[in-house]
């Protein structure tokens, strides 16, 4: 575990959890750090290979330029779009007070 702990620390995991707005307990923090370190260790096997001449893979599928014609189609009726919202006001989604400006 010592080698793995260098790949990712509990502080890293706590930071990412906070960015993802996840509440994790100290016990979970320890557990997830170990699990994530194992995942990273697995990916680290690739480092053993010489990949100097290999371009980065943008996507696992051998596809490009999957495009759609610019033609409008009806979406959801407004009642349906708003039906799943916890709160609605003036035909809009009502959300709690926002803390801070948009990024």
């Amino acid at each position: 575990m010592a080698g793995m702990a260098q790949r990712i620390t509990t502080a890293d995991v706590a930071h990412v959890a906070r960015l993802a707005r996840l509440a994790v307990t100290d016990e979970e923090l320890e557990r997830f750090t170990g699990q994530l370190a194992a995942v990273l260790d697995h990916a680290a096997d690739i480092e053993a290979l010489d990949l100097g001449g290999v371009p980065p893979t943008a996507h696992p599928l051998p596809l490009a330029n999957v495009l759609r014609e610019d033609v409008a189609r009806p979406g959801l009726p407004r009642e349906e779009a708003l039906a799943a919202a916890p709160a609605v006001e003036d035909d809009r989604f009502r959300v709690p007070r926002i803390l801070g400006e948009a990024p």
């Binding site: 610019d70 409008a72 979406g75 407004r78 779009a81 708003l82």
Partner: peptide
């Protein structure tokens, strides 16, 4: 454009609120 970037909802300014929406642009 006539439509949004990733779905076929109309790209139109000034329409009634939430009338140009679909599962893609609502993130369903």
């Amino acid at each position: 454009t006539e439509t949004k970037l990733f779905c076929s909802c109309a790209n139109r300014f000034g329409d009634e609120p939430n009338t140009n929406v679909c599962p893609v642009c609502l993130g369903l």
